[in-house]
């Protein structure tokens, strides 16, 4: 018992995601400036900042959808290489939910969820389907399983995308502005699923503009501007008394709209 506890503690000390000295340029534009970030198991980290601050780029960098010019990405102790099978394997351990859903348009909802487990993890078809149905049930779109993405609403699509990520049993899920492409009335249903996930102890990195949501679910808030992390703070402190001037300006600029 004690030993197990010890091992768990040791595991906790290895961050699920660790970024070390990440630099990235788009041409001459320095979009990520010596970024360091580590995310512990079970932690929910919300990245906020004005548009163009590099928060989305940072999120996409974590599973190397963006190339980096310097630095290291370490997933659960393993360095993510530039290419090859190991890159694919480490990516499969980190889920990703995109702003524009990016469901596979030619596949049914069910197949969207089963395709990666079956082809990447070699899970038998029946098993993958049962699991997929459980996941679709959990995000509330099981009744749509046999439709294709084009027949679903944005909110439903995004919930399917979350189920698709979960089907890979990821060590963490990245959310890149998951509600920005949604009609206002659908934002809630996606945030509810995410809140539930956070409550279940899923490790999450979330880029969002939903400040209320951030305040509610974040264990840690990261404020970015100009390609740098300017502030890491608890949500309580960040929203009531931000340390940096730019964070204060940013929160003020949101005004009453976000409160």
């Amino acid at each position: 018992m004690a030993q197990e506890q010890k091992r768990a503690d040791a595991a906790r000390q290895v961050p699920v995601i660790e970024l070390r000295h990440i630099d990235k340029y788009f041409g001459s534009l320095h979009v990520l400036k010596d970024v360091n970030l580590s995310v512990q198991r079970g932690e929910v980290v919300v990245i906020i900042g004005p548009s163009g601050s590099g928060k989305s780029t940072l999120c996409r960098t974590i599973n190397r959808l963006e190339t980096i010019d310097a630095g290291e990405i370490i997933i659960d102790g393993a360095v993510m290489p530039e290419e090859g099978k190991m890159l694919a394997k480490l990516r499969s351990e980190i889920g990703m939910v995109f702003q524009s859903f990016n469901l596979f348009e030619h596949k049914s909802i069910l197949d969207n969820v089963t395709i990666a487990p079956r082809d990447v993890l070699r899970v038998p078809r029946k098993e993958a389907q049962e699991e997929a149905m459980r996941l679709l049930e959990r995000v509330g779109v099981a009744d749509q399983a046999h439709k294709v993405p084009a027949q679903l609403s944005g909110g439903q699509k995004q919930r399917v995308a979350i189920a698709r990520s979960l089907a890979m049993h990821p060590k963490a899920i990245l959310f890149d502005e998951p509600t920005s492409a949604l009609d206002p009335e659908m934002i809630g249903e996606v945030l509810d699923v995410m809140t539930e996930l956070a409550g279940e102890g899923m490790t999450m990195v979330i880029v969002t503009h939903e400040m209320n949501f951030a305040r509610r679910v974040a264990d840690r808030v990261i404020f970015m501007d100009g390609g740098s992390i300017l502030e890491e703070n608890t949500p309580q402190e960040f929203f009531s008394a931000p340390r940096s001037q730019r964070a204060r300006d940013f929160l003020n600029s949101l005004g009453d709209r976000e409160r």
């Binding site: 959808l65 099978k85 990016n102 990520s165």
Partner: peptide, 27 residues
């Protein structure tokens, strides 16, 4: 094909061959 789908396939851990087979060719 929307390039986003290729990114999604990659983020699920598909190799080049897998994403061509599962996403690009069929569509």
């Amino acid at each position: 094909i929307d390039p986003g789908q290729i990114e999604a396939a990659r983020s699920l851990g598909m190799t080049f061959a897998q994403l061509v087979r599962n996403v690009v060719l069929p569509q």
